[in-house]
Simulated scan of single mutants.
Amino acid sequence: MSSSNGSDPWQAGFSHHSGHGHNANRSGLDVDFRYLDTNGESFQSGNAFNSSSFSTQNNQTVYDRANTFGFDTNYQGTSGNLDGPTSISNHNDHGHLGRSTNTNNIFNTNQLPPVMPIDSSLQGMR
């Protein structure tokens, strides 16, 4: 996410964009995330969509759930084929979630289906 001043809290020397705050116009409204693998864990790859570790289902779930909370300006890399996020350059290695300032598009979380309890035989497995 952006720092409070809108700049990227990124590693020194990395050329990305001017900040998720977009010059303080969107401070704290945008998030980059590493794509998820088949175990639901983030991983780093130059082009995650071409990796055998990439999970279409897990990443689609991230975008779908984020959308229910008002993140409706979302981007994926040009190699991606997920439903919803716009394909854009420089995002094959990470996803982007953009939060709308319109609160009318936020899903009522009370309408979400209940989370199923984890099967106790699977606990501790990763």
Rank of each mutant, 00 (worst) to 15 (best):
G70M: 14
G77I: 04
I118A: 14
G80Y: 00
N39Y: 11
T56H: 14
Y63W: 04
R26Y: 09
V62F: 01
G19N: 03
N108F: 01
G80N: 00
D32W: 02
N58T: 02
D83P: 15
M125A: 13
S100D: 02
G6V: 09
T56W: 11
R34N: 06
A24V: 15
N25I: 15
Q111R: 10
N104L: 14
D37Y: 04
H96S: 12
V31A: 13
M125T: 14
N90P: 05
V115F: 12
T78G: 05
N81A: 10
H20I: 00
M1G: 12
T86M: 15
D64I: 05
N5L: 04
H20Y: 01
H94S: 06
Y75C: 05
R65E: 06
N104S: 06
G124Y: 01
Q76P: 08
N105L: 11
S51T: 03
R99D: 10
F49A: 09
F69M: 15
Q44I: 15
G28V: 06
L112Q: 05
S2E: 00
G98S: 07
V31M: 01
S3K: 08
L122P: 07
F14G: 03
M125V: 15
L97H: 03
I118D: 08
G124W: 01
T61I: 04
R126A: 13
N67P: 09
Q57G: 03
S3F: 13
L36P: 11
S120R: 02
V115I: 08
W10L: 10
G98T: 09
H16E: 03
N90Y: 05
E41I: 11
A66D: 12
Q60V: 10
T103W: 01
G21F: 01
R65C: 04
S18P: 04
T86A: 13
H16F: 14
L29H: 10
S51F: 10
L112C: 13
V31H: 02
S27F: 00
S42N: 10
S120Y: 02
N23I: 14
T78R: 00
P113G: 06
A24R: 12
T109K: 05
T68Q: 09
S7V: 04
D64N: 12
S42V: 12
G84T: 06
R65A: 14
S4D: 12
N104E: 02
D119H: 13
Y35I: 07
H91P: 08
T56V: 07
G46Y: 05
N81E: 11
T38C: 03
L36H: 02
N102G: 06
S27A: 15
L82E: 03
G40Y: 07
D119N: 08
N67M: 07
G21I: 05
I118E: 08
D119W: 13
S42Q: 09
Y63S: 06
F71I: 02
N110M: 06
N47S: 01
T73F: 09
H22G: 11
W10T: 14
G124K: 00
N104M: 08
T38S: 02
S18L: 12
P117N: 05
G70I: 08
M1N: 12
L82F: 12
A48C: 10
F49K: 13
I88Q: 15
Q57W: 01
N110P: 12
Q111F: 11
D37C: 07
D93S: 03
P117I: 07
N23F: 14
N81F: 06
T103L: 15
F54Y: 10
N58L: 06
V115C: 04
P113N: 01
H20D: 00
T68A: 11
T103P: 10
G70T: 05
